[in-house]
């Protein structure tokens, strides 16, 4: 039991973020430029516009094990 609890505490969600190249992706770059820290379990997929994000992409991310999907644009 203590082991399981430990695993639950350690659990971190995997987040896939679809970021528009012109705003949110640039914003993520800006966060880097300003050395703002955030957890490493977020992966950015660069898209040319949030309008490019087909719902199919979101479903695919969940299907392949993502815990959360962020669409930013």
């Amino acid at each position: 039991m203590p082991g399981e609890l430990n695993a639950a505490e350690k659990w971190e969600p995997k987040i896939i973020a679809f970021c528009c190249n012109w705003c949110a992706y640039a914003g993520a770059d800006l966060a880097g430029l300003n050395r703002k820290k955030y957890p490493a379990n977020l992966l950015v997929v660069r898209v040319p516009c949030s309008g490019r994000v087909n719902p199919q992409f979101v479903l695919r991310a969940f299907q392949k094990g993502a815990d959360a999907v962020l669409v930013a644009g």
Partner: peptide
Amino acid sequence: ILSEVDAGC
């Protein structure tokens, strides 16, 4: 994009 999502997951 799908292959990227797959690889990330």
